[in-house]
Nucleic acid binder design. Structure first.
Length: 420
RNA sequence: GUGGGUGUAGCUCAGUUGGCAGAGCACUUGACUGUGGCUCAAGAUGCCGGGGGUUCAAGUCCCCUCACCCACCCCA
């Protein structure tokens, strides 16, 4: 094969493309009800935007970005995640805050592909901008929970943590760094790097020896300020009140630098190694970081591909085998021309109709109709053209009737929306 | 970057101790020239991922390489 798709990219073939349309329209409906407005941002931005927001300690920025220069020498990058672009757009276009925005956009990360991980993938993102109260966190989490339930995500569970605010975190990271320095020689190479860049990330480490050291590490819980504790308690109380099951996971810190306080991940046990369907949290400092006014915000994003993987064959985006409600079967050259005319007239009337233009006797045409999964066929031969009456055949039952054009319209318009 | 697995027909996959390249599904044609699905018959389809080596002989054994998948890591 001479031409292949680029590593880590996928062709989304008709049946999956249909499923995605179904998913998107459901998401749109739910989010509209919750007051979210759609937004779309460019596929590439200045590299610096991601560097400043996603952060220097994140894997995304350090090793996964598609970074390039354009002909004007601009330092650009393909969008690896949506939140920075959306916040930039809010700021740049002076959108009125508070505002709730959502998007579905492709994201690009040059990671090594495997199941549920692609170099181009699609995220649905949801951002609540300008709401600092824990109720916003609760509403958002409930929204996600309901959405994933509706989609039929199998083996779903929610992990929850708080990573504090600037004030309480700085004291904690200081203490944590001190602890890590004491154990410097026992740590793995990755953790030695993490220690300096973003010490909280050491909790992500899967190396057994690191984990056993970390058991004795100071707990962030003991360093949360009273405001952060209050916020976290309110969120947890809300989840309990609305019967949203969750697991508290002190190890959950998220790979992006801009989070504060609440962080969440929805996971599915069916996905294997890449089990996170949705990640998110609060990012009260990001707007300020980008040079805007201090603006609290909370949001999440879920991967469309993973959501589909985790719910295959279930939920809202099942789709029907594509079938043709009515297929015109012309017999002979004259009938072909005639059937084209008929095709346009019927379609104008709103009927989902197609025509078979290949030549062949009736036997062959019916065979083709069968292969193409036609519900009903209209046989158009010399006799039919002469009389203006066509034979309408039901491909399932084999019933046939002679119908004129007007009769045909009536039959199909009254049966609109029905499958065969 | 580090492991493991898989590459054979359009698809799913067999292929034995090295001995003519196979099956099922799908496809084409006919039986059936204005009535499909079922059945029967016939047919087409391959750089066996690529390169090199061993051998009288390689899909099969050896070396190299590429691609894809999975896992580590990280995340959606």
């Amino acid at each position: 094969m001479r031409y292949r798709r680029v590593k880590g990219t996928r062709d989304i073939l008709p049946h999956e493309a249909e499923a995605r349309r179904g998913l998107e329209s459901q998401v749109h409906e739910q989010l509209s009800k919750a007051g979210f407005l759609p937004i779309l941002t460019p596929t590439f931005e200045y590299y610096e935007l991601y560097q400043r927001s996603t952060g220097e300690s994140s894997d995304i920025v350090t090793k996964e970005m598609y970074r390039f220069q354009d002909m004007g020498g601009r330092d650009l990058a393909l969008r690896p995640e949506g939140t920075p672009s959306v916040m930039r757009a809010v700021l740049e276009n002076r959108l009125k805050i508070p505002i709730r925005l959502w998007y579905v956009m492709p994201m690009f990360r040059q990671d090594k592909p495997q199941k549920g991980r692609y170099r181009e993938h699609t995220q649905v993102g949801v951002e609540v901008i300008g709401e600092a109260e824990p109720q916003a966190d609760i509403e958002l989490i409930k929204l996600g929970f309901d959405l994933f339930t509706l989609m039929g995500i199998k083996g779903m569970f929610l992990e929850l943590n708080t990573i504090g605010c600037r004030e309480c975190r700085s004291g904690y990271t200081e203490q944590l760094t001190g602890f890590l320095k004491e154990h410097h020689d026992e740590l793995c190479a990755d953790c030695k790097v993490r220690m300096n860049r973003n010490p909280l990330r050491v909790f992500d480490c899967k190396v057994a020896s690191c984990q056993s050291i970390l058991k004795q590490a100071p707990s962030q819980r003991d360093h949360l300020c009273s405001a952060c504790i209050e916020h976290f308690d309110a969120v947890k109380a809300g989840l309990e009140r609305f019967s949203i099951p969750y697991e508290e996971n002190e190890r959950l810190v998220r790979g992006l630098d801009y989070y504060s306080r609440t962080v969440i991940e929805f996971k599915s046990s069916t996905l294997g190694a890449q089990d996170t369907v949705c990640g998110g949290g609060r990012y009260d400092y990001l707007m300020g970081e980008l040079g805007g006014p201090p603006t609290a915000a909370v949001g999440f994003a879920f991967g469309v591909e993973r959501a589909l993987l985790a719910s295959r064959g279930e939920g809202i985006f099942e789709f029907n085998q594509s079938s043709i409600p009515l297929l015109l079967l012309p017999l002979g050259d004259e009938a072909k021309v005639y059937s084209l005319e008929l095709l346009f007239k019927l379609r104008e009337a709103g009927i989902g109709v197609q025509a078979e233009f290949r030549s062949g006797n009736l036997s062959k045409q019916l065979k083709r109709a069968n292969t193409r999964n036609a519900c009903k066929v209209l046989i158009i031969g010399e006799n039919e053209i002469a009389s203006g009456k066509f034979i309408l055949r039901d491909m399932q039952t084999g019933d046939q009737q002679e119908v004129g054009f007007d009769e045909l319209l009536n039959l199909f318009c009254s049966a609109k929306g029905q499958s065969c």
